[in-house]
Write a protein that binds this DNA or RNA. Sequence first.
DNA 1: ACCGGTACCTAGCGTTACGTTGTACCGGTA
DNA 2: TACCGGTACAACGTAACGCTAGGTACCGGT
Lengths: 119, 119
Amino acid sequence: MGNQMTEMLKGTLEGIVLAILEARPAYGYEITAQLRDEGFTDLAEGTVYALLVRVEQRGFVDVTKVPSEKGPPRKVYTLNAAGTAQLAEFWTTWTFLSGRIEHLRADRTSTHQQTEGDD
Amino acid sequence: MGNQMTEMLKGTLEGIVLAILEARPAYGYEITAQLRDEGFTDLAEGTVYALLVRVEQRGFVDVTKVPSEKGPPRKVYTLNAAGTAQLAEFWTTWTFLSGRIEHLRADRTSTHQQTEGDD
DNA sequence: ACCGGTACCTAGCGTTACGTTGTACCGGTA
DNA sequence: TACCGGTACAACGTAACGCTAGGTACCGGT
């Protein structure tokens, strides 16, 4: 199915996760569950963990281990200053790209008939 | 620079090019120039050609060779039925993803960590 | 003792955009 | 003639990212 979605998530999933962490700290299993609950039903669990490892290594998040009554200890990720900056960059890039694409979609609705502005 | 943009283009650039071709047939060099003109200044020329080869092999476009007075013959790409269907799928995926991300941005603006209905 | 839910992690794979380089055609200029 | 820059296409290797498909470990209920 979502082969299209798979490719489209590249580059955006990191921003999505950082945005989630900006709202409140969370751990991997929780983030995966939340995203699946919000429509990303095919999201692989391993994808989120790999992403979290990446953003941790880049210094965008701080990590705290919190014991759980239900299983192994949770690794709770908190967005730090560098992560906030990265997230801001994400929004900038997203806004530009989104604007370009929506512009294409708007063109689509009004570009029906004749030839204009050919060269 | 646009490392962020590079990753975000994965999965979206194909849809962007298909949308351009929906408006009117075009050839590689022209598409690259148009995209650069519209803000994708760092877009590599080779990227567009590789993408066009891909969509051609998948049968989303028809190709016609047209002689040029300025250089080698142009390969003009025209969106066909399969391409139109693929483009429709792109818009579906994009609309969903865009909606989710904009939802996250909307949440960001109301940063009271008070519990309120977020949906 | 077993199973399912919780919670984490990893190796290899396929796809995609980039960097770089090369080919070929043409008109203008020294 | 010889060279250069703009036009136009193509190929090769690299890096990044999400997915597949596993595995480890803790816990309570049957």
